[in-house]
Amino acid sequence: MFGKKAQPPIRSLVGEGMSVHGELRFTEGLRIDGEVQGDVIATGEARSILVISEKARVLGKVKASHVIINGEVHGPVLCDELLELQPKARIVGEVRYEVLEMHPGALIDGELRPLRSTDKPTLTLAASNDA
């Protein structure tokens, strides 16, 4: 489903050692290696990608089409396409997703809910051998 669509380019960066205070809005792609104290929200109608690296920390709401987390998020996460939780991901807050890929080691302290209420959850196991 996601492999066929080209990912938007990552044009913005919050670098390691950098701290941003306040709401951060972006289009297309953003990578966070530092700390953001405030909401991180993709704007516009186009697809978006947000990467929160292993050393990153976000204290606020996170919202984008495709979110990849390997750092810390303290706040709600809303992902209307694919949410990827890497092994060092730590989330404290409600998580809403369309499709979830969660690697062993990732932790969520909060409610985990799909955007669409279905009989079968759209959960992909990272260790799955099914293709």
Rank of each mutant, 00 (worst) to 15 (best):
37 Q>Y: 10
40 V>I: 08
22 G>R: 01
29 G>D: 02
41 I>G: 07
9 P>M: 09
108 I>V: 15
118 T>N: 07
1 M>K: 12
112 L>Q: 07
50 L>Y: 04
114 P>I: 11
71 G>P: 03
91 I>D: 03
68 I>L: 10
124 T>D: 09
85 L>A: 10
16 E>Q: 14
102 M>C: 15
93 G>H: 08
67 V>A: 05
122 T>C: 02
96 R>S: 13
49 I>H: 00
91 I>H: 02
16 E>I: 13
35 E>G: 03
56 A>H: 03
17 G>H: 06
118 T>Y: 00
55 K>S: 15
38 G>M: 07
122 T>I: 02
5 K>S: 09
96 R>H: 12
82 L>I: 14
89 A>G: 10
117 S>L: 00
97 Y>L: 04
53 S>R: 01
48 S>C: 09
29 G>I: 08
95 V>E: 02
105 G>F: 06
74 H>G: 02
29 G>A: 06
110 G>M: 00
51 V>W: 02
88 K>Y: 14
41 I>Q: 12
115 L>Q: 10
45 E>P: 07
90 R>M: 10
61 K>C: 00
98 E>V: 06
66 H>V: 15
53 S>C: 03
19 S>A: 13
18 M>C: 13
130 D>T: 15
8 P>I: 13
91 I>C: 03
5 K>M: 09
47 R>S: 15
111 E>C: 08
129 N>Q: 14
11 R>E: 15
75 G>A: 05
50 L>Q: 04
49 I>A: 07
26 F>R: 09
11 R>H: 13
95 V>P: 01
112 L>D: 03
112 L>A: 05
68 I>E: 14
36 V>S: 06
37 Q>H: 12
17 G>L: 07
117 S>D: 09
